[in-house]
Simulated scan of single mutants.
Amino acid sequence: MSSLKSRIPQFVKSIVYSEHLAEDPTKVLKLHKYPLSSIFQENKNILLKSIAFPVNPSDINQLQGVYPSKPEKTLKYNTDTPSAIAGNEGLFEIVSLPSSVPHDQFKVGDWVIPLQANFGTWSTYRACDLPSELIKMNGLDKFSAATFSVNSCTAYLLVNRYIKDWNPGQDWLITNAGTSQVSKIVTQICSSLGIKTLSVIRDRDNFDEVANELKTKYGATEVISESQNNDKAFGKEKLPQLLKNGKIRLALNSVGGSSATAIARKLPKDGIMVTYGGMSMKPVSLPTSLLIFKNIQCLGFWITQITKEHPEEKQGCVKHLLPMYQKGEIISPKDDLRLMEWDVDNMKDEQVLQMFKDAIQIKGKKNFISLKH
């Protein structure tokens, strides 16, 4: 067994829930303290110390009870009723390893993330049984590593899963919600591969400023507004000039509604539109002509299900993306996160619980909780 005994606590604190409430998911949260021995036995389990985790929409949807994937509720955390620990994504440090784990696979001090969702990341410590449940994340900053599973893997697979024969310097990809973290990573990946990108963003007073940042900081080739996206005259007259002799082969939709229809219209014959989100809460609607005469494929993407069915694809994301982060081809998302700190030893329980409620309710930047042990 390999461990740092001085860092092994007697108790764990976790944000748990035993029921769901769509109207106000903050009401189902509880801060629960329980013995570490409930989940961890030395030389049998891997002990993980939490470093940081984001609060994602999927986490909130799970608490609401509307997300298709949910963790199993259990009594192993010494709760009065069967409960689950909230949180799907996060970054951990290995504190203790069974002697059966080869040193060249993992060692104490390694940074790791869970391979699968429903891990229960909103906790001071977690334990798992098998090394295969973890992916090594050494060499990244905590902001990139803690958000890797959802945003980074989604972006990489969106670019590489559906088009295998990209023609660098000629082919284009269009994405709506251009200021989202996934879109920003998509444009950076495409920039490194020589794929041109057209990012669609909401109309706003500071459009030029935001568009310039997306191009200079995040590698977008061109940026247009939703008004331009929905303007048929723009599509007929301006778009060909913008694309020159290139074509948009892939459309990435995370908005829905008219925005999705408009980006689909810009695809050529046999083009592909992949939907991975629905920010507008409006359905995806395509004209019949796009399906009949242009044979547009309209596909769905869910990173949780893909990782469950094809875990090797997530391992592939790590293999390709870690060097890109380390070379600066993809930058840290730190500037796009609202930082909150969980001071494990000094914060009162009610303060911790209120912080999580705020993290769910405060909109704008993605809320990111970093732990101080």
Results as ranks from 00 to 15, higher is better:
residue 4 L to C: 12
residue 7 R to V: 01
residue 7 R to S: 10
residue 8 I to Q: 03
residue 8 I to W: 00
residue 9 P to L: 07
residue 14 S to Y: 02
residue 24 D to H: 00
residue 24 D to N: 08
residue 32 H to W: 07
residue 32 H to S: 02
residue 33 K to N: 13
residue 36 L to E: 01
residue 41 Q to T: 15
residue 41 Q to A: 12
residue 41 Q to Y: 10
residue 44 K to R: 15
residue 52 A to E: 00
residue 53 F to C: 01
residue 54 P to E: 08
residue 57 P to I: 06
residue 57 P to W: 08
residue 58 S to T: 13
residue 59 D to K: 11
residue 61 N to F: 11
residue 63 L to I: 05
residue 65 G to I: 02
residue 70 K to N: 06
residue 73 K to D: 05
residue 73 K to P: 01
residue 74 T to F: 09
residue 75 L to R: 11
residue 76 K to T: 09
residue 79 T to V: 04
residue 80 D to P: 01
residue 81 T to F: 13
residue 82 P to N: 08
residue 84 A to L: 00
residue 88 N to D: 11
residue 89 E to S: 04
residue 90 G to T: 03
residue 90 G to C: 07
residue 91 L to I: 04
residue 94 I to K: 03
residue 98 P to M: 09
residue 100 S to I: 07
residue 101 V to M: 06
residue 105 Q to R: 15
residue 107 K to W: 03
residue 110 D to I: 05
residue 112 V to A: 06
residue 115 L to Y: 05
residue 115 L to E: 02
residue 116 Q to W: 10
residue 117 A to S: 14
residue 118 N to A: 12
residue 124 T to C: 13
residue 128 C to R: 01
residue 134 L to W: 04
residue 134 L to S: 00
residue 135 I to C: 13
residue 136 K to S: 09
residue 137 M to K: 08
residue 138 N to T: 12
residue 139 G to A: 12
residue 141 D to V: 11
residue 146 A to V: 00
residue 149 S to W: 12
residue 152 S to V: 15
residue 152 S to C: 11
residue 156 Y to V: 08
residue 158 L to V: 11
residue 160 N to G: 04
residue 163 I to T: 07
residue 171 D to K: 11
residue 172 W to I: 06
residue 172 W to P: 00
residue 175 T to C: 12
residue 181 Q to R: 12
residue 183 S to K: 04
residue 183 S to F: 09
residue 184 K to S: 07
residue 190 C to Y: 04
residue 192 S to F: 14
residue 194 G to S: 10
residue 200 V to Y: 06
residue 202 R to G: 03
residue 202 R to Q: 08
residue 206 N to V: 12
residue 208 D to P: 06
residue 214 L to D: 03
residue 217 K to T: 14
residue 218 Y to K: 08
residue 222 E to K: 14
residue 222 E to D: 13
residue 222 E to P: 03
residue 226 E to I: 09
residue 229 N to S: 15
residue 229 N to M: 14
residue 232 K to S: 14
residue 232 K to C: 07
residue 235 G to D: 07
residue 240 P to L: 13
residue 242 L to C: 11
residue 242 L to M: 15
residue 247 K to G: 11
residue 248 I to V: 15
residue 248 I to L: 14
residue 253 N to G: 08
residue 254 S to Y: 10
residue 257 G to R: 05
residue 258 S to F: 13
residue 258 S to N: 14
residue 258 S to V: 12
residue 262 A to R: 03
residue 267 L to H: 10
residue 270 D to A: 06
residue 273 M to F: 05
residue 276 Y to A: 02
residue 279 M to D: 04
residue 280 S to C: 08
residue 281 M to L: 15
residue 282 K to C: 07
residue 284 V to Y: 11
residue 288 T to G: 13
residue 293 F to V: 01
residue 293 F to M: 04
residue 294 K to Q: 12
residue 297 Q to V: 10
residue 301 F to R: 06
residue 301 F to I: 12
residue 302 W to E: 10
residue 303 I to G: 00
residue 305 Q to K: 10
residue 306 I to F: 09
residue 307 T to H: 03
residue 309 E to P: 01
residue 310 H to M: 13
residue 318 V to L: 11
residue 321 L to E: 01
residue 324 M to P: 02
residue 326 Q to C: 10
residue 329 E to D: 15
residue 335 D to P: 06
residue 339 L to S: 11
residue 349 D to H: 09
residue 357 K to P: 02
residue 361 Q to W: 05
residue 362 I to C: 07
residue 368 F to S: 03
residue 369 I to R: 01
residue 369 I to M: 04
residue 371 L to E: 02
